[in-house]
Structure formats: C-alpha cells, structure tokens
C-alpha cells in the first residue's frame, strides 16, 4: 500500500517535471514584447494552416463565383478574374507555405548539421572537403540556381520546390555549426566522452548537437524564412505548378492578370502580407533567442543601463 503510493507520487512528480521542462522551452519566448508578439503571430498562422479546411469558407480552386469582386461580406478578400474566392485561397496558401517552409527549413538544417558537425569535429582533410563544398553552395546565387533547376524540371509542385530549396540552401547553417562544433570539440566534456570510449558518431549526436540546440533552433527559423521567401519567389515567377494553391501562386496570378493596373489591391496585398507576417514572426522569435542565448549582447545592455563599472565587476 505504502509502496504503491510512493511510486505513484514519484511518477506524477516525474511527469510534472517533464511537463515543466517542456514548458520551460517556451519561457524565453515570453521574456520580451518582441518575442511574445512573434510567438503569438506564429501560433495564429500555425492554427490557420492546420485548420485550413475548417476556416476556409469555400474551395480554393472552385471558379464558380462572380468574377472580379472587391471585398464583400460573402467574399472577404474578393474574387479572382475567374471567380475563385481569394480568402479561401489565402487560408489554403498559408497551409502550403508553412509546410514547405518548415519542411525545407528542417531538412536544410539537418544537411547543414551533417556537413558542419562532421567537418568541425573531424578536422583535417574531411573538413577541407566538406568546407569546400559548403563554401561553393554559400557563394552560388541561390535563386538563380533554383530557377535553372526549375527550367529543367518544369512546373514542379510546392513540395518538390521545398526539397530543392533545402538541397541548395543549407550552406550558411553548415558554416555556423562547423565553427560552433570546433569550439565545443576542445571542451573537457568531449574529452571525457572520448575517454569513456564513445564512438565519434555518438559523440556528435549525443554530446555536440544537444549543446548547440539554441543555434540549431535559430537556424531552423532562419532557414524556414529563407525557404518561404524562395518558394514564394519561384511561384511568383511562374516556376511552380500554376494550379497549386500557395501565396506565391496567388501573386503570380495577380500580376498575370494585371491586378496592379486594375487597382485590385485585395488580390496582391493579402498573400504578401501573409508571407511577411509569418516571416516577421520567425525573425522576432530568432531575435529574441539571440538576445537570450548570446550573453555578450545582454552584458552590453546591462553595462549601458547601470554604468560601465557594473559590468566590469
């Protein structure tokens, strides 16, 4: 009886501990106005993306409504020249942009981790070769490369675009991970792990990666922003299946049908604003994380707030 009670309380304490730790991850996001705004903005778009079929009043591709309507009660963002509901397109576009953005962001971070961590940890020839490949991808003009690949692929879906974006856009992350790995590799705990006979792969995965979690998270946000912008740019240029529903494709149709010259601002303003707001939420969260995880930026703040001597001591 007694024993049972203790185990169960222990269990609940333990699960509470995990829960606490889970929520602790999000505490930094509420430490300043900027990051809270970013986080809430992000949650809103996440919910829109997940619940798109419930929120959107009509089908995004059905061309059955009155064409060229300005915003009305029935069609909040108006309709296209073929009579598609723009609000529904916007909602479904959020879904595609978020999936492509995060998919590409996470994938490119993983590729960057492979190149950066292995190069930084191994050093020597491995590092030279991996570093060279990284630098090549770093200096190649990304969008031009993407456009050329699209030229040979022809009318790909948003998901294939996301894949290509990830495969070409990982280099910046790799460079950051490499330098961080090199600093970490000299620390005592890595030496201890080596002594205890852990394999290099195990050290990289279980010792090095967890110790640069903040950089990894920052890179995911940065890469996601880049992927969303790149995907929308490609779609805007018409290098994506033009029947797909994404914010970039909406802008493509808007400019193809001279929405600018007809003053149809409700056609091209919402998609761009959507991209911008999702991007802004990522930038804000990233900026807040920089402030939190980069002690020197914080130290300077303190120094200037309380006078120069305070920082010295």
């Amino acid at each position: 009886m007694n024993a049972e009670i203790t185990t169960s309380t222990q269990n609940s304490e333990k699960s509470q501990g995990y829960l606490m730790r889970f929520f602790k991850i999000f505490i930094p996001f509420f430490s300043s106005g900027k990051s809270t705004t970013g986080f809430i903005l992000f949650l809103i778009f996440l919910i829109i993306a997940i619940l798109a079929p419930l929120i959107a009043p009509y089908s995004p591709s059905a061309a059955v409504y009155d064409p060229n309507l300005p915003p009305t009660a029935g069609h909040w963002f108006g309709t296209t020249n073929t009579g598609q509901d723009l609000f529904s397109q916007f909602i479904y576009g959020a879904r595609n942009s978020m999936i492509v953005g995060f998919g590409a962001g996470i994938l490119s971070t993983i590729i960057g981790l492979i190149f950066g961590v292995i190069g930084g940890y191994r050093g020597g020839l491995t590092d030279s070769i991996l570093g060279f490949i990284t630098n090549i991808f770093l200096v190649m003009p990304g969008l031009a490369l993407l456009i050329v690949i699209e030229a040979y692929l022809k009318a790909s879906t948003p998901f294939i675009n996301g894949l290509i974006i990830a495969l070409t856009g990982w280099a910046w992350g790799a460079r950051v991970f490499r330098s961080q790995t090199m600093t970490l590799a000299g620390r005592d705990f890595i030496a201890a792990a080596k002594m205890s006979g852990k394999s290099p792969l195990r050290i990289m995965v279980t010792e090095i990666c967890p110790n640069m979690m903040n950089i990894i998270a920052g890179n995911i946000m940065f890469a996601t922003l880049g992927a969303i912008l790149a995907e929308s740019g490609l779609a805007f240029l018409g290098f994506e299946d033009i029947n797909s529903t994404s914010w970039g494709t909406m802008l493509y149709w808007a400019s193809q049908n001279a929405a600018l010259l007809r003053g149809a601002w409700w056609w091209f303003v919402p998609p761009g604003l959507g991209i911008g707001l999702v991007g802004l939420s990522l930038v804000l969260m990233n900026f807040a994380m920089d402030q939190i995880t980069n002690p020197r930026l914080k130290a300077q703040k303190r120094r200037n707030n309380r006078g120069r001597k305070a920082a010295r001591s």
Partner: peptide, 27 residues
Amino acid sequence: LPVVSMIFQAMPYFWIALLFVFVFGFK
C-alpha cells in the same frame, strides 16, 4: 530601427516592389 528593418527582412522583395509599383507608380 531594428524592428522596422526586421519587417523589411521578412517581406518578400518582389512584393515590396509590387506595392511600390502600385502606390508610387499607379496611384
């Protein structure tokens, strides 16, 4: 300034261009 510039960083270039064309060119 950092906030304003962050907003611009998050915006797609071509959309800003579209807005400029619309506001300063068309309107």
